[in-house]
């Protein structure tokens, strides 16, 4: 059984999957990938089910040694990924060999990057999920961020076929655009003016942002009648407005309930773009209907599904390389022979 050896880990590298559902009534946060779309794509590119456990890198990656031949895919933030010191592309299947070393540097663009490994990372499931929840100290590797010396066992599987995502489907935050939200239905009429202000304001993502939530800073919105209320359930993308008038958007490690009044919920299909904005980025919001939110989500999912189900099945047969020892003039060389796809880069 193969494994990944952590030579060096970035500041906050954790094992994440699609999250831990079913226990929110017991106060257990969902956790999971911040950019679930990027995690899903990474998994599909190595032939995994959507929800297999991946590594999530936050702003910095680290250095990882592979004890086995396998395939990986890198998605999300661009961290200048290299295998054995050669730059490798994101959003396509990469075949690694035993002894290869993958490094991820500082995020040039985006915040969260994902590395899926063919088969998935085999840490024990806790309450149905492999996601790390650091405050609760469970999930992932001992409920904590990775450290040098950690060994991550991999689930055995066959080599996947080679896939490369077309740029049109890659959701990297290249261009500035507005983020859609559905205004809260609670007291919608009375709150219409707050929803208006929220859309007029220019926000910046505050540096005090993490997996629990992003703080926004802009012109304060003052609510009549105070900002506290009886605690209600919250979700991924819930926009809270505490007393200082600066919104907080709740994310993967959010509490299950909250006592601040809410402006609305960010569209699921815009969460990927939103979470990938670095601290200091400028953000604007635009209200939209739930039906439109779902239509946008489905349209993208349909395009993804079409790509993954229609990609030509260029199966790399016996993708695991064959190694030969050749001795010439008393010096021994190792020759590695591996079939390549016509458009696969050689590194």
């Amino acid at each position: 059984m193969g494994s990944i050896h952590v030579v060096n880990a970035g500041g906050m590298v954790t094992v994440q999957d699609m999250g831990r559902y079913g226990y929110q009534s017991l106060g257990v946060p969902v956790s999971g990938a911040m950019d679930t779309n990027a995690l899903k794509i990474a998994n599909r590119l190595v032939g995994n089910d959507d929800g297999e456990a991946c590594l999530e890198f936050v702003m910095t990656g680290g250095q990882y040694h592979f004890s086995t031949d396998t395939a990986v895919a890198l998605t999300g933030a661009d961290m200048d990924f290299k295998v054995n010191d050669r730059t490798v592309p994101m959003y396509e299947t990469l075949y690694l060999h035993q002894g290869d070393e993958l490094t991820a540097n500082y995020a040039k663009m985006g915040v969260y990057a994902y590395m899926a490994v063919s088969g998935g990372i085999d840490v024990p499931k806790v309450l149905g999920s492999r996601s790390t929840f650091i405050r609760g100290r469970f999930g992932g590797v001992e409920g904590r961020a990775l450290r040098p010396g950690d060994q991550l066992p991999l689930i055995d599987t066959a080599m996947p076929k080679y896939l490369k995502m077309p740029n049109s489907l890659v959701k990297i935050p290249y261009e500035e655009r507005t983020v859609h939200f559905t205004p809260s239905s609670v007291d919608r009429e009375q709150c219409a003016s707050y929803h208006q202000l929220f859309q007029k304001n220019d926000y910046r993502i505050d540096a005090m942002s993490d997996r629990m939530g992003y703080r926004l800073s802009g012109d304060a919105i003052q609510m009549m009648g105070g900002n506290d209320m009886l605690s209600v359930p919250v979700g991924a993308g819930t926009i809270q407005l505490p007393g200082n008038g600066q919104p907080i958007v709740l994310l993967a490690d959010r509490q299950t309930t909250g006592g601040y009044r809410q402006l609305g919920q960010i569209w699921t299909s815009d969460m990927s773009y939103f979470v990938q904005q670095q601290a200091g980025s400028r953000i604007r919001f635009c209200a939209g209907a739930i039906s439109a939110a779902r239509a946008q989500l489905k349209a993208y999912e349909d395009a993804l599904t079409a790509f993954f189900s229609n990609s030509p099945s260029k199966k790399v047969k016996n993708a695991a390389p064959k190694r030969y020892r050749i001795t010439i003039a008393n010096k021994t060389y190792q020759v590695v022979v591996q079939p390549l796809n016509s458009d696969e880069s050689i590194f």
């Binding site: 559902y21 079913g22 226990y23 929110q24 009534s25 969902v30 009886l230 605690s231 209600v232 359930p233 919250v234 979700g235 299950t256 309930t257 699921t268 739930i290 039906s291 939110a293 779902r294 989500l297 489905k298 999912e301």
Partner: peptide, 23 residues
């Protein structure tokens, strides 16, 4: 549904929007 979250005076029912139409 994916999850049910009860609080003091409210309940949230959480769905996977690709699987279930919330309306």
């Amino acid at each position: 549904i994916r999850d049910v979250i009860p609080a003091y005076h409210s309940i949230a029912v959480i769905v996977d929007p690709l699987e279930t139409s919330v309306s």
